[in-house]
Design a protein around this nucleic acid. Sequence first.
DNA 1: AATGCGTATTAAGTAAATGTTAACTGATTT
DNA 2: AAATCAGTTAACATTTACTTAATACGCATT
Lengths: 233, 233
Amino acid sequence: MPDNIEKKPMPKILLVDDEPDIIELIQYHLEKEGYLVKTAKNGVEGLKVAKSFVPDLILLDVMMPEMDGIEACIELRKDNTLNSTLIAFLTARAEDYSHVAGLDSGADDYITKPIKPRVLLSKIKALLRRSTVNQIIKNDKVSLEINRDKYIVICEGKEFTLPKKEFELLALLFSKPGNVFTREAILAKVWGDDIVVGDRTIDVHIRKLREKIGDVNIKTIKGVGYKLNLNVN
Amino acid sequence: MPDNIEKKPMPKILLVDDEPDIIELIQYHLEKEGYLVKTAKNGVEGLKVAKSFVPDLILLDVMMPEMDGIEACIELRKDNTLNSTLIAFLTARAEDYSHVAGLDSGADDYITKPIKPRVLLSKIKALLRRSTVNQIIKNDKVSLEINRDKYIVICEGKEFTLPKKEFELLALLFSKPGNVFTREAILAKVWGDDIVVGDRTIDVHIRKLREKIGDVNIKTIKGVGYKLNLNVN
DNA sequence: AATGCGTATTAAGTAAATGTTAACTGATTT
DNA sequence: AAATCAGTTAACATTTACTTAATACGCATT
């Protein structure tokens, strides 16, 4: 491996599970891939470690004593330090509810037990890819890239330099394609909590985006919010 | 500067306990969180209030004069209007039996005394969250998914983007498949309390749903309400 | 068969949410 | 100081969801 390649620090992963066997198994595979791993055996401990370790990803068992995964997730999400930390649940296939409730509580993914190392690793890779500053989506319908380093958007081969607010707005919609973002959420994320702006401000920005990168489908859901539509009809 | 703050109706909670101190304590904490709270000091009264208030959650003390919590719970469960209302027992830690019997009588959770406000609030939050989550049903007859994040309904593989009211209505029926929802309950949940609409409004929305996702069986029960029929004949 | 009650079905009306445009403000550049 | 640009606002247009009203249907009761 030549030296002139930028050395990216490997992602940090926090693993929270009460079963030592599971911990050992997963930790082994993760470290083999080069990830930096720390572990905790319950939600309370996990919370503590998370705050100092500031991992890129937290793997959280749903069923745990003391504080279960969902509770822990909710607590984790309250911590601004962990804003950009991904959370994935480990859950037995049977507990279907937890999968659902979990995603709602702010998790980014879930992984079902029994855990197959291959699957786990590829899922983790995919998750971490998503979180990197730059994001790309390419399918037969759409080609869109958001590059934070260069602060540009590449859409259908054309390059755009968007103003800050437009850029952030697009990036937000893009962060979870297909998901609806309420006006509230958009204001909170792009503008900030305290700032108060008029009713039409978001619309105008949406309009400018639509004008500039018309290829991408920004869909309005009246009374709910906006979303990026990637499975164009 | 216009106040464009979205008004989300806060969940309604009915608190039934015979001890004024407990009532006061809990009520204080609940209202601080923004919940709409009503109280009753025994099962009989609780039943009466529940029917008109149509709360999202009922906190029910197990030990009460007149009518104890379990009896009350059984009665509450008979009322179709309260179909989608959650019920949680408040119980002293010792009375272990009540936990078992309680869940059997149709309760959704139990909370042990002495009550720690923090724990109570997080439990309540979790309970209420469960009811507004993404849901999937798949069996040999029907395949239906309600995805709140993407605000879509997937029925037999086909994707639908429903308007808000239709979406909420379907989601409500879907929250307890097979159960009947009275018109009052539907109005309370989907439209909200203050809003007054004509007699035919619900019908029209039901019709639109039937039109769009004909595969799913929305059954009318005359004089009672509507239900989602998933065990198609 | 006639009545009455509750629901279904339309189409048309209304209100609410969003779209659009241009003009204004303040910051930054020239 | 003029020009440019991002961001916001205000006024108005447009679109859609939602509601209503009028009428038809279905079923039970008599």
